[in-house]
């Protein structure tokens, strides 16, 4: 696979993953680009998962240097978005992706341990167990259990955030 095809396949997901870690779309794009530049310096046979690992490291460095936290939005505004996503307007197309839904998913991912978030995004991006395993330094047979636990944590976190949002909406209403 050449770099262009690799870029088209993974760049949007990388940006999205980094946006979730950093809360800053422009910075996410910048770091996703940097990950690809580093790939040019170190061509690999199976770079898919490697890109996520490098992107995660870049995000960690960026947070450290800028004093950022992964959760960039205030709890209050996050709850408002959660409440809006939990109680869609009548007639709203449930299948349609909304900005609120995207923010809810992104914020929920940001609450997870970094490895869990990376695993879920890589899996959704169709990166193989073998590549994920090689990138994060575990045996391929460990990916199934890790992924299953990450999915459970994600669902639990999503549920608790939605519940919190509903409670806050009731309290303020």
């Amino acid at each position: 696979m050449n770099i262009r095809r690799l870029f088209e396949r993974h760049y949007p997901s990388l940006v999205w993953y980094l946006h979730g870690r950093l809360g800053d779309h422009d910075l996410a794009e910048d770091l996703a680009q940097e990950a690809f530049v580093r790939l040019l310096d170190k061509p690999l046979r199976a770079p898919d998962a490697w890109l996520y690992v490098v992107a995660g490291n870049l995000a960690r460095d960026a947070r450290r240097s800028e004093g950022r936290r992964a959760r960039h939005l205030s709890i209050a505004s996050a709850h408002e978005r959660v409440a809006a996503a939990a109680d869609p307007a009548p007639g709203a197309d449930a299948a349609m992706c909304t900005a609120e839904e995207a923010a809810l998913v992104r914020d929920t991912l940001a609450m997870l341990p970094e490895r869990d978030a990376a695993l879920l995004v890589m899996r959704a991006d169709d990166v193989s167990y073998r590549e994920i395993a090689a990138a994060i330094g575990v045996a391929p047979t460990s990916i199934g259990p890790l992924l299953a636990r990450a999915q459970q944590r994600f669902i639990r976190a999503l549920g608790s955030r939605a519940e919190r949002g509903r409670n806050d909406a009731r309290a303020s209403g």
Binding site: M1, I3, R4, F7, Y11, P12, F36, L40, P43, L44
Partner: peptide, 28 residues
């Protein structure tokens, strides 16, 4: 929920940023 990214313009930025290497390089 993965955002739509303008991959073409992003690719052009990468080509510039990499000094043109991205346009010709292939994973080894």
């Amino acid at each position: 929920t993965t955002p739509k990214v303008d991959s073409d313009s992003a690719w052009e930025r990468l080509v510039v940023r990499s000094g043109g290497r991205a346009a010709t390089a292939r994973p080894i």
